[in-house]
Amino acid sequence: MALTSIKNLKEFSTANERFEGAHLLCPGCAHSMIVRELMNATDDNLVIASATGCLEVCTAVYPYTSWDTSWIHIGFENAATAAAGAEAMYKARKRKGTLKDPDAPVKFVAFGGDGATYDIGFQWLSGMIERGHDVTYICLDNENYANTGGQRSSATPVGAHTSTAQAGRVSYGKKQKKKDIVAIMAAHGAPYVAQLAPNKWKIMAKGFQKALETEGPCFINTVSACTTEWKFNPKDTINITDLATDSLMFPIYEIIDGRQLNILYRPKNVIPVEEYLAAQGRYKHLFKPENRHVIDMIQKEVNERWEYLQRREEAGV
């Protein structure tokens, strides 16, 4: 197990990239920032399974591949299962002594978007974690089905306009709450579960390394700002993610063994949720006078959630 030094960015930048450019993700897409960071966090061999989604269709457009590691595209639902199968086979062959290079360290990683994780691949992911495979599952959460035109998913937050939960005269966008996937995965008793964001690169790299090092199934939910469907200028990806973490819309925390919750980032100045919403086109309609109550509702929920996380951290149960 060899991890890249992440003491500072200069040390980290000596990692040799294994994710190539000229993939077809939108300019300013946070997906590739997260993937690059994961692949640079270690120099072990990686076996990666990608669920169908933006990441998969954009990095493996025939006749090109952007991956310098073993990588497989699998169905929408079963990235977790494919990685688990590869891991089980690897262990079996190691036991039987039929591996070419049994001492080479290998890590198994699965990537899924929020559609593949929260909705379509949920059952498979749950099974993978329950069976206890040594796989790190990373959800790239951009809060909608961005690859197919921005339909709502169960990760879409309240009030967001999507192509199947439209804002207009009768509706203010999606009415249902976002699923709390981190808590659900922690409830499985997974040894390491976290929610991370690419703007805090060091916290994210640390979390990735911890997940890769941990024996057993790990789940990480990462915030991936989507320039196309969240409707903001591509150059602002990191600024929007900053707003998301500082307004506590996306608190950054980890849960160890399903019990001990640690908050990994506490913003010095907590900004109102309104600033985060105002920066994106998908929340534009909330600033009409008749929809102002939705903003208050979101703010109230964010406050309650933050209170809950802090109390749970103190209690350590």
Partner: peptide
């Protein structure tokens, strides 16, 4: 040489 651009470039 702070490498901020390196870590956040989406396109390597």
């Amino acid at each position: 040489d702070c490498q901020n651009c390196w870590v956040w470039c989406p396109d390597t």
